[in-house]
Design a protein around this nucleic acid. Structure first.
Length: 594
RNA sequence: GGGCCGGCAGCUCAGUCUGGACAGAGCGCGGGCCUUCGGAGCCCGUGGUCCCGGGUUCAAAUCCCGGCCGGCCCA
């Protein structure tokens, strides 16, 4: 009679670690007199042949206990019940006192595969968010030109994080904050009117068109500083218009709105191509009234001070910020930061967590923002900002103003071109028609671009280089190719394996793959907790590498034995499940053919 | 001048939070693997004062202090 089968663990690696920890901890407390529960670090990649996991715990205990580390390790092993743990095959002491553990590979492989097949597309998903609402804001580029690769970094970091948070049960709303009333927009609106409100040419993306217009405007204004005042007047008029104080400014308001909407249209088109989605677009101009109220409140509280010239300023020295914050200019208009405070108050009311993805140049502004939120008793700790460093071009940092940038569209186009060349060179997919080949190349391009940007940790500056960014050998295509190879095996096997014995997966390459797959839930959790998409990108790469090695070294369809063949087919199938989940989180298209 | 971030192989980067075994990958360079599942791949080799100087520790790329260089922000 079959027993009632228990659901397998969501996170087999954690089960393993917990078992080992408990066993060692118990051994320590029964052999030694230590007051606090001991931290037992577990190393999943010990540098020793035939060892799967290890712990240096005996080394760190040496001082407290006053014994040689090796001796401590031996005592721990004697006292512990590690040899009775099913997942452990052998535990021994090596080197200066490491406890090295070889796993019971058949047992562990069986556990891992059971989890993967049981949860399938949910494998890797731990309940970190418990359904709590979160607002994640990213991209939020000024609508005065096309998105360049710097914005791409923002969008991709934000998008991967959003996908990971949804996957780990956060109730996420992704927002794009449209900066529709900054000085840059005023410059563009001015130029737009000056040029007689030109239509966007048919053959041009609107953001590209207005980006060029903006660069021209910036140049003109630089050459004739008197125009600065004209632009300032535009800005004032628009803000008063929004507050119903100056209804005559309709023409100006309309110019603002046209340029913003057109540029935004272009942004969305690019983002869709890159598979980046937003749930909601929030406009800065919606917060003008709230901003005014907040300033009044801060003055009433006595926190902010109204100077003789009419400007309202806030002293933040108590927060370690020497620079005083201007909330209202002497002409009565509010500033970006003031409206940003209003926006954040609004977000905090609607969600348990607020996450922003911002360039490193916003660090001071965020410090100020958080200080003000604290003054307003609005819980700044619930606002978490992910900063990323800039992407530089060989000729300097990117600038919309100077018209010096590599757009995301160009980046994708170049990637696609190279993918097509590669396909031709490899003579791949020749039986498909032109359109299908284009589609594959486009998907390879998306994977290449997303991976190139995601793989670098956010706080590291990137020097952009075409050949390096589009190196298919260590990039998205490498990952996609692993998946494609696996799918190709499954297609040819053309059989549905039901029962199999994981004990046949104990050779080094198969087991390495099993072990890597078992790390997936943990990697997702790390990515969410540390807000570091690069962790997941790195993991995807390692998983792909483990598969490529397995593929080259271990025959599946031509396995020496029918039972071995079945087990390996299931391993390949499990790999496609895990890899598909990883790729979904990274937004890298999974392809049957490429 | 102040604040934040980075500096590791010729190049691009992991590892630093939570200190532990010879510091890991990829590119490059040298050599091998297409009579077996797709060579956008695999294997072997080459290559490092972990920016410098002190300190803490049995043990430092990792922690602390002081410098240097680069980026960003503020003045």
């Amino acid at each position: 009679m079959a027993e009632e089968e228990e659901a397998p663990p969501h996170d087999p690696y954690s089960v393993l670690v917990r078992t080992i920890r408990t066993s060692i901890r118990d051994a320590i407390s029964s052999a030694y007199d230590v007051d606090e529960p001991v931290e037992v670090p577990v190393d999943p990649e010990p540098p020793v042949e035939d060892v799967d996991v290890a712990t240096p715990v005996a080394l760190s205990l040496a001082k407290e206990v006053g014994e040689e580390p090796r001796k401590i390790a031996e005592t721990i092993l004697e006292e512990s019940d590690l040899d009775e743990v099913v997942l452990v095959d052998e535990a021994r002491v090596d080197g200066p006192g490491y406890i090295n553990i070889r796993l019971n590979r058949p047992q562990y492989a069986a556990l891992v595969l059971r989890s993967i097949f049981y949860y399938e597309e949910e494998y890797g998903s731990l309940d970190l968010g418990m359904g709590r609402p979160a607002i994640l804001e990213h991209t939020s580029a000024n609508p005065n030109g096309p998105l360049h690769i710097g914005h791409g970094r923002n969008a991709i970091i934000g998008d991967i994080l959003a996908r990971c948070m949804v996957f780990t049960n956060y109730d996420v709303e992704v927002q794009y904050y449209v900066n529709d009333m900054g000085k840059q927009i005023a410059m563009l609106a001015w130029k737009y009117i000056k040029e007689g409100r030109p239509e966007v040419p048919e053959d041009k993306k609107p953001d590209e068109f207005f980006g060029e217009l903006y660069a021209e405007a910036a140049k003109e204004i630089e050459e004739d500083p008197e125009l600065e005042e004209v632009v300032e007047r535009f800005l004032r008029s628009y803000e008063r218009y929004l507050l119903d104080e100056e209804s005559r400014a309709e023409r100006i308001a309309e110019a603002f709105q046209v340029v913003v909407e057109e540029c935004l249209k272009g942004h969305i088109e690019t983002l869709e191509r890159l598979r980046v989605a937003h749930d909601r677009f929030v406009y800065e101009s919606e917060f003008v009234e709230d901003a005014v109220e907040i300033v009044e409140k801060l003055v009433d509280m006595g926190a902010a001070e109204k100077r003789d010239d009419g400007a309202v300023i806030l002293d933040l020295e108590d927060y370690g910020i020497d620079k005083e914050l201007v909330l209202t200019r002497s002409d009565g208009t509010t500033l970006y930061t003031t409206r940003d405070i209003a926006y954040h108050l609004w977000k905090l009311k609607r969600a348990a967590f607020v996450i922003d993805v911002l360039g490193a140049d916003h660090k001071l502004a965020v410090q100020q923002l958080k200080a003000v939120l604290d003054i307003l008793d609005a819980d700044p700790d619930r606002v978490d900002v992910i900063f990323y460093e800039f992407i530089h071009l060989p000729e300097g940092s990117m600038s919309t103003r100077k018209g010096r940038y590599v757009t995301l569209d160009e980046f994708l186009d170049e990637a696609k071109k190279r993918a097509l060349e590669k396909m031709k060179e490899a003579g791949v997919a020749e039986d498909l028609d032109e359109e299908e080949r284009e589609e594959i190349a486009e998907n390879v391009a998306i994977g290449a671009v997303r991976f190139a940007i995601a793989r670098v940790s956010p706080n590291k500056p990137i020097e952009f280089d075409w050949d390096e960014a589009l190196d298919f050998r260590r990039g998205g295509p490498f990952i996609q190719y692993a998946y494609t190879r696996a799918k190709s095996i499954l297609r040819q096997a053309d059989e549905e394996v039901q029962r199999f014995d994981a004990a046949y997966l104990d050779d080094d390459h198969s087991f390495e793959l099993v072990f890597k797959m078992s790390m997936f839930p943990r990697q997702v959790a790390q990515c969410v907790r540390k807000r570091r998409p690069d962790i997941l990108a790195e993991y995807a790469y390692e998983l792909a590498r483990a598969f490529h090695t397995f593929y080259e070294e271990v025959p599946v369809l031509h396995a020496e034995d029918e039972e071995v063949r079945k087990a390996r087919l299931k391993l390949v199938e499990a790999f496609t499940i895990v890899m598909e989940n990883v790729m979904n989180l990274l937004g890298i298209p999974a392809l049957e053919r490429m």
